[in-house]
Simulated assay, not measured.
Amino acid sequence: MTTTALFHLAFPVNDLEAARRFYGGLIGCAEGRSSANWIDFNFYGHQLVAHLAPEECGHVATSTVDGHQVPARHFGAIIPRGEWEALANRLRAAGIQFVIEPYIRFKGEPGEQATMFFLDPSGNALEFKSFADLGQVFAK
């Protein structure tokens, strides 16, 4: 399936200012519209909306992937390797604790990818990936 559609993802946060610093400052997402209860971010060309909903925050469930416990509920982006490495370095410099440290997953197999998992200030899990060949994103 080929599409030119953009995605829209709404997710809960417990502090809008912390979300603004994290997504806008650290991750580098430009801010769009906002109110006292939500903020739109340009997440690599897609609409990411942080809604103030503290009771909905955090993650619990995990799933085993490549020997790691991956947060079952997460979101992120597939970005070029140089950007992925720069983001990993910014996160380390900012003292972000990784759920799964940056590494190469499925090394030498179809779908080989660089990946890392970390939490935002509200406990939402994010995964950022990079493929040497984007044709491998759905490789079996």
Rank of each mutant, 00 (worst) to 15 (best):
T64H: 08
E101N: 15
S35V: 06
Q113D: 08
R20N: 03
I78L: 01
C57D: 04
N124L: 11
R33K: 15
F11R: 04
P110K: 06
E55W: 01
F131N: 05
T62S: 14
A5Y: 09
V60I: 08
S34N: 10
F106I: 03
T64W: 08
G32P: 10
G111S: 07
V99D: 08
F128V: 04
F118R: 02
V70P: 10
C29N: 06
W38Q: 02
K140S: 13
L119C: 12
Q136N: 10
G67P: 13
V70E: 13
L134G: 00
Q136V: 09
I96R: 00
F43K: 01
Q69M: 12
L16A: 06
M116R: 05
G32D: 07
L119I: 06
G135A: 02
I79W: 02
Q47Y: 00
H74Q: 13
N37H: 12
F75Y: 14
F117W: 07
G25K: 05
Y103N: 13
L9Q: 11
A139G: 09
Q136P: 01
G67C: 09
E85I: 10
I27D: 06
D133E: 09
R90Q: 13
T3V: 01
E85W: 08
E56Y: 09
R105D: 10
S63Q: 11
F22L: 06
F138S: 06
G95S: 13
F106A: 09
E112Q: 13
K129C: 04
H74R: 14
T115A: 15
A10I: 00
L48C: 05
T2P: 04
A18D: 05
R73W: 14
Q113C: 10
L9D: 00
V99E: 14
G45K: 05
I96G: 01
E17Y: 04
G45H: 07
W38V: 04
N37S: 15
F106R: 11
W38A: 09
A5G: 08
A18I: 03
V13E: 01
D66Q: 14
G82M: 09
F138Y: 11
A50R: 02
E112C: 05
I100K: 07
G123L: 07
G45M: 08
A125L: 02
R33Q: 13
G108S: 09
E56D: 15
N14C: 13
E127Q: 12
Y44S: 03
E83W: 05
G24V: 01
G108R: 10
G25V: 11
I100P: 08
A88L: 07
A94C: 07
G82W: 00
W84T: 01
A10K: 00
A53D: 14
F131P: 02
D133I: 09
Y23C: 07
G95F: 12
I96K: 02
R20L: 01
P71F: 03
V60F: 09
A125F: 03
G58A: 13
N89M: 14
G45S: 12
M116Y: 02
G111P: 03
S122E: 10
A114T: 05
L9I: 03
R20Y: 01
T62K: 10
A125V: 05
F75H: 09
G24S: 06
E31P: 01
F106E: 11
R33D: 13
D40N: 13
P110W: 04
G82Y: 01
I39N: 03
D120L: 08
E56S: 12
S122W: 06
V99K: 11
G24Q: 02
E31W: 03
D15G: 02
T62M: 05
R20P: 00
